[in-house]
């Protein structure tokens, strides 16, 4: 029951988003749709925290097919279960805060809205044709060692979204 709402569509999706630079600060936001594979959800309930990592890149598009990456950020969020309180926790390492939820679905929905503001070097902030790329994935390196090897073999441990990109306003 705790997992029902979290595993309906076992996929990580990015529904939309945007970015703008104001006063040498990059403001980015994205609408995410996260749901865990039943195997991963079961692992969370059994005390194996799963780190969901949001990768953000600031790139510059040129005429050629590939782009130049100026800056990269990683935003790991640890999804866990607290047996004593029977609650799911979402721990943001950057904010150093832990949020508590009744269900895993509630915890994932907490992550649906992603927004962040990062300071930029002046030289980069002035560049044109900048774009933001974003991806959300399970951080396999944070899994316990036995599951790391399994993550190579089992696709359910290899959840990640496609890269989504939108221009910086």
């Amino acid at each position: 029951m705790l997992l029902a709402s979290a595993t309906t569509t076992a996929d990580f999706k990015i529904l939309g988003g945007g970015a703008q630079i104001t006063n040498q600060h990059l403001s980015s936001h994205a609408k995410l749709d996260l749901s865990l594979d039943p195997r991963s959800a079961t692992a969370v309930v059994n005390g194996i925290p799963i780190t969901i990592c949001i990768d953000l890149e600031l790139v510059q598009n040129k005429l050629w097919p590939w782009s130049i990456t100026f800056l990269e950020w990683r935003y790991p969020v640890k999804l866990g279960y607290h047996p004593l309180s029977r609650r799911f926790t979402v721990t943001d390492q950057r904010k150093k805060s832990t949020a508590v939820f009744h269900t895993l679905g509630e915890a994932l929905r907490q992550l649906d809205r992603f927004s962040v503001i990062e300071a930029l070097p002046a030289a980069i902030a002035k560049k044109k044709n900048l774009a933001v790329r974003i991806r959300v994935r399970i951080d396999k390196e944070s899994l316990p060692t036995p599951l790391q090897f399994m993550s190579v073999l089992v696709p359910s441990w290899n959840q990640q979204s496609q890269w989504h990109e939108w221009p910086v306003q």
Binding site: T42, N46, P83, F149
Partner: peptide, 20 residues
């Protein structure tokens, strides 16, 4: 909780651990 958590974790990881 830690003991219970560890026990559950090991229980969940039993098959992957054996496989590893």
């Amino acid at each position: 909780q830690s003991a219970s958590d560890e026990y559950n974790r090991l229980k969940f990881l039993r098959q992957p651990l054996k496989l590893n």
